[in-house]
Write a protein that binds this DNA or RNA. Sequence first.
DNA 1: TACATTTGTGCAACCGATTGTACAACTCAA
DNA 2: TTGAGTTGTACAATCGGTTGCACAAATGTA
Lengths: 342, 342
Amino acid sequence: MPQVKTTIYDIAKELQLTPSTVSRALRDHPRISRKTKKAVKEMAQQMNYQQNNVAAALRSGKTNILGVVVPRLNRSFFSSIVRGVEEVASQAGYNVMITQSNDKSANEQSNIAALMQAQVDGILASVAMDNQNFQHYQQIIDNQIPLVLFDRVTDISNASTVVIDDYLGAYKAVEHLIQQGYRRIAHFAGVQTLQIYKNRLRGYRDALEDNGLTFDDTLVVQSHLKLEDGTASMRQLLQLDELPDALFAASDFAAIGAMQVLKENGFVIPEDMALVGFMDEPFTSFVEPGLTTVNQLSEEMGRFAAKIFLEQVNGKGDFVARKTVLTPRLVIRGSSVKKEDD
Amino acid sequence: MPQVKTTIYDIAKELQLTPSTVSRALRDHPRISRKTKKAVKEMAQQMNYQQNNVAAALRSGKTNILGVVVPRLNRSFFSSIVRGVEEVASQAGYNVMITQSNDKSANEQSNIAALMQAQVDGILASVAMDNQNFQHYQQIIDNQIPLVLFDRVTDISNASTVVIDDYLGAYKAVEHLIQQGYRRIAHFAGVQTLQIYKNRLRGYRDALEDNGLTFDDTLVVQSHLKLEDGTASMRQLLQLDELPDALFAASDFAAIGAMQVLKENGFVIPEDMALVGFMDEPFTSFVEPGLTTVNQLSEEMGRFAAKIFLEQVNGKGDFVARKTVLTPRLVIRGSSVKKEDD
DNA sequence: TACATTTGTGCAACCGATTGTACAACTCAA
DNA sequence: TTGAGTTGTACAATCGGTTGCACAAATGTA
């Protein structure tokens, strides 16, 4: 049954009304009488009327689409964020248009361009690893489109941000290692153009120094923190004359890479070397020993980002960018806790 | 600099042309002269013109948005599919609107309704676990919207499908176990309303019988195949008088759950029990021993689905639903291969 | 040279809703 | 009874492109 789409014109004709009245009735305009509203709504139901978002968007200037840019969806961290975003957004009547940059700045730019062309009402984004210049983000603001950055943020005036306290997360992680008796703690750092990785490095350093340990930059290896990077970095560390006895990696993937190399080389975790990651990807609890890591409250972060966007669009022009900082949670598993009987 | 959006009217005025000519020039209409096209395009560039998709969509009836419904994005399998879809779609000028059903039929229905209301040009979907009725899918077809189902498909006339050969995947997996010397092979089956799980069960059964083993339904446990389900199912199997010596799970998550229970109970894998999963989630290579599994060619599946959609919309009305079947790949890891020195 | 085609552009309707304004009918107070 | 205020609906413009058709100019053909 190839249905013909029913429009408000059809409903109007059926009820001897005008389209404008129908439109207002459907949207509960106060000037429309109860009786008319009821009649219109019933007829709409009966005729299986579905509002045409596109037409509404053109006239009203609001598409009710929220654009999202993430580096990659196959990180549980990001897909959980998306889930949080979707949850809040769909409840408020928004559809979500998702794009992935694959951590490439070029993709990010074209994604943003596409979203703006689609006239999204707002953009939530987490910036790609290899970004040097943030002009495309500035353009979003220039076009008066609400922008909320999450996790991998950068300084854009008038953009709200949602992050976890990366400094604290790192600090806690390293402090935990120290409490467990580890003294020579290495760090896999991320690219320092991104604040999150800078903060994690700072947290690492401060935790060491606050506990009377000296910061040693031969123990810090910087990379993109993918699994391969983790293996390469660990191989590099194993060349050192004096090996570290623990590792704090700024990403679970790098930590797993390191774990693999360690196992290959006969190291026992955590006795020979302790490991702590960052992200709390689900697989961290599958591996053996379980990987201690820092949970980043992904879903909550997504919900927050979406809520902030909603507040901004619903606000009465009195908008000021908000910086939200969530407190991460250290998740302790076997990879950093020496067993009793040692 | 709060820019004012430039429209084709602005360009037209600037060049003393009409909007229709500008529109045609931008879209390379054959009737427009080279000279005019050049002038228009240059002016568009100069004025930073961005086409308003919404307006174009309203008149042309094409939004250039492709809707996607997946059970959940935090399965690498599905997020990879999405990546494949995005790759092909964006190259063809489509934006992708993604929704998650969280495996709930109710969400799926509202997602589909939202996508249709957004006037998407097509929908790619993988059905939720608990679906009993597929009327909402039928509605997509009734509304003349191209529908491509992938992986978790169902029989909808005029819907194309892309699946892997689940029967073959299961068959190969079980055959592999038999070749490794296992004889009492259990199976974690999925809900039998979904063809993929039916086919995997059939493959399991046929592989057994073709190799002279008898099918024993006390060794088959059905569930939603999540990690928790895997642990529960394995606990159930361990109650049996005669334990299985291998397990073929229709999902990696259930297999990991089983693995955890086995380890807790002091079983050595694969000596005491072999494990094979299905999906090839990345974590299967992180665990120890690595989990043998069936790779489902996720990204390729996504690309295929998107291509089929494109063919359908670009085709000249001579459309017939296509059933595409990809051949899965058995990925052998430690969980199913007894070590030499046994 | 006259007629048929082709080429290039303009005109105006249109997609389907939203919304400012106009206006008739009704309510109510003085 | 009259004027002010309310209530309920209609009119028509509008959002910004797209597209069928008309038509003049240019080109081609016999």
